[in-house]
Amino acid sequence: MNILNILEEIEKVDGEIYERLSPRRAAMKSFFSVGKKLSLAAMPLALGSMFQKAYGQTAPASVTDVLNFALALEYLEWNFYNHALVATPSLVPDANGAKAAITVIRDHERAHVNLLKGALNIASPTDPATDGYKYANFQFEAVLADVFTNYQSFLKVGTALEDTGVRAYKGQAGVLKGTDVLTTALRIHAVEARHAAHLRAMTAASLGVNLKPWISYAANGNDTGISLVDANYAGEQNTMQAGIEINGLGGASQTQAAESFDEALDGVAVKKLANAFIKDGFKLT
């Protein structure tokens, strides 16, 4: 999740968020312009400053809930990749840059955690493993029992997580339509999509199958082979876009039409996926 997702979710509970940033276009343009010049370490401070401008020292409970939800999802992803790299170092092979790629993705998730903590004014401890959601709060093995002992299972679960992230992001460009930062938003989306595509390529190479870089047409919309996340691929067979049936348009087959677009996921579906990985007592509501 990134700043665009966060702001759209906050807008649902605080319709005046952009007016608080005074004005929306200028604030967003300023934030992204500054963001290009800042290191990842400084970004949490910049985001925290932006929210302080909007709300003062303390954001309302509804906004804090949104930020904490986003933070929980980033902790989920960071713990998933970090555990694979640190606790089971032989799981991801060094060959073909696999371990390097997972390390980069893991580090990106940590940067997202720090970004959100900056917005919530939460100080970062020295050891990130003791921060916020702990690995012990999760149950990754409940999704696939051999997720940290079988490299292919690990890749399948990672693919499901990244696919869901891309679908959850869809629609963000519409939030910024008509603003100066639309191009930036699309670039961020493209980076997120590349993460998903890279994991899919790694999965395909490991399994020796023709898994496409995007969500492919399947009987239930889910091409990962993990039945527990079937609901998070719902709608991926859709061939109607903007009220127009694109099946057959320009000679496109049903498969081509369905694979041409990622379908948006709402918060309920995203939480359903997340809660499959979270132990009782810590689940998202």
Results as ranks from 00 to 15, higher is better:
Met1Arg: 08
Met1Glu: 05
Leu4Gln: 02
Leu4Arg: 00
Glu11Asn: 07
Gly15Glu: 04
Gly15Trp: 08
Glu16Asn: 09
Glu19Lys: 12
Arg20Ser: 09
Ser22Cys: 12
Arg24Gln: 08
Arg25Asp: 14
Arg25Glu: 08
Met28His: 07
Ser30Arg: 15
Phe31Thr: 04
Lys36Asn: 10
Leu38His: 12
Leu40Ser: 08
Pro44Tyr: 15
Gln52Phe: 14
Lys53Tyr: 11
Lys53Glu: 04
Ala54His: 10
Ala54Lys: 13
Ala54Met: 13
Gln57Asn: 12
Gln57Met: 14
Thr58Glu: 13
Ser62Ile: 09
Ser62Thr: 09
Ala72Lys: 14
Trp78Lys: 02
Tyr81Glu: 03
Tyr81Gly: 05
Leu85Glu: 02
Leu85Gly: 02
Val86Met: 00
Val86Arg: 08
Ala87Asp: 13
Ser90Thr: 13
Ser90Asp: 15
Leu91Met: 06
Pro93Cys: 07
Ala95Gly: 05
Ala95His: 13
Gly97Cys: 05
Ala98Arg: 06
Ile102Met: 13
Ile102His: 05
Ile105Leu: 11
Asp107Lys: 10
Arg110Met: 15
Ala111Lys: 11
Ala111Ile: 07
Ala111Asn: 14
His112Lys: 12
His112Ala: 11
Val113His: 01
Val113Met: 14
Val113Asp: 03
Asn114Ala: 12
Asn114Lys: 13
Asn114Asp: 11
Leu115His: 05
Ile122Ser: 00
Ile122Tyr: 03
Pro125Met: 09
Pro128Gly: 00
Ala129Lys: 04
Asp131His: 10
Tyr133Asp: 04
Asn137Arg: 05
Phe138Arg: 03
Phe140Pro: 01
Val143Tyr: 06
Phe148Tyr: 15
Thr149Val: 07
Tyr151Pro: 00
Tyr151Cys: 01
Ser153Pro: 06
Lys156Ser: 08
Leu161Phe: 12
Leu161Thr: 07
Leu161Trp: 06
Glu162Gly: 04
Thr164Ala: 15
Arg167Lys: 15
Ala168Tyr: 15
Tyr169Asp: 04
Gly171Asp: 00
Ala173Leu: 09
Val175Phe: 03
Val175Ser: 00
Val175Asn: 00
Thr179Cys: 01
Asp180Gly: 11
Leu182Ile: 15
Leu186Glu: 07
His189Met: 08
His189Glu: 15
Glu192Val: 12
Ala193Tyr: 10
Ala193Glu: 11
Ala193Lys: 08
His195Cys: 01
His195Gly: 03
Arg200Leu: 11
Met202Glu: 05
Ala204Phe: 09
Ala204Gln: 02
Ser206Tyr: 01
Leu211His: 08
Leu211Met: 05
Trp214Cys: 00
Ala218Pro: 05
Gly221Lys: 09
Asn222Thr: 06
Ile226Tyr: 06
Ser227Trp: 12
Asp230Tyr: 14
Gly235Leu: 08
Gly235Lys: 11
Gly235Tyr: 12
Asn238Leu: 09
Gln241Glu: 03
Gly243Lys: 13
Ile244Val: 15
Gly250Thr: 10
Glu259Gly: 00
Phe261Thr: 02
Phe261Gln: 03
Asp262Trp: 10
Glu263Gly: 02
Ala264Ser: 12
Gly267Met: 04
Ala269Gly: 01
Val270Gly: 02
Lys271Gly: 03
Leu273Arg: 04
Ala274Pro: 00
Asn275Leu: 01
Asn275Glu: 03
Ala276Val: 11
Phe277His: 07
Asp280Val: 15
Gly281Asp: 04
Phe282Glu: 02
Lys283Ala: 02
Leu284Asn: 03
